[in-house]
Amino acid sequence: MEELEHRIFFADLFNWALGPAALWIGNLLGIHLNHERPIPNHVAMAIIVAALLVGVSAFMRNRYRLIPGPGQQIIELIVDFFQGLLLDVIGEKGKRYLPVIGTLGLFILTSNLIGLIPGFASPTSNLNVTVACALTIFVYYHFSGIREQGILHYLKHFLGPIPLLAPIVVPIEIISHFSRIISLSIRLFGNIFGEDLVILILFSLVPLFVPLPMQFMALFTSIVQTFVFVMLSCIYIGGAIAAEEEHTEAHSH
């Protein structure tokens, strides 16, 4: 993994511009940072990706037309895709989660793809970033479940359908929910890190042309991994709020 932590121009630029500030904040919080490069590549790249997404969104927002141009059409396609996914998995209530799922999906997709551009690296090839994404979803879907059902009703589902089996079901549920963080983060990290590593190895063997097939493959896996992450996030959110819908339906009958 250290092999991939090569010098990146933009990360160097970040360290030059914001390094002292990062060191000061680190000292303030009692966090030990590398004095030479306090802002690691993946943090710098994640900030670039976030800035890029905010910039493009802000740029496109002012250029919205009734009859869309190519850029607007592509953005509409992406939004339609996320919205369709949410409607399919969660139902009509899914529209409410579009901002979170859309932001996360776009961040992961851009993070996966940006590593293919020379001079950049995929933030998602670092476990810290993927764990951060997974934790965001973990916290968000529990928050959504509690918001929909209330804390007691939501926690009641962890006891299982038969009260007698609660001592067995509760630990299983807890492990199952925490394993989601691991599965989400390791899957994404493993795939992106793996493809970056293979490209790097192929590049170190024969720099020209040989890594190309793997780069095409990386394009595909970047999209697939984004889809998997987003799809699982939708399922987790849907699962957290579904119990309330069942409950409401039961009452309505």
């Binding site: 293919l116 551009i117 020379p118 001079g119 590049f203 020209l208 190309l212 394009l219």
Partner: peptide, 8 residues
């Protein structure tokens, strides 16, 4: 890398 990326 630039040539590869350009081809891609």
């Amino acid at each position: 890398p630039y040539i590869n990326f350009a081809i891609l």
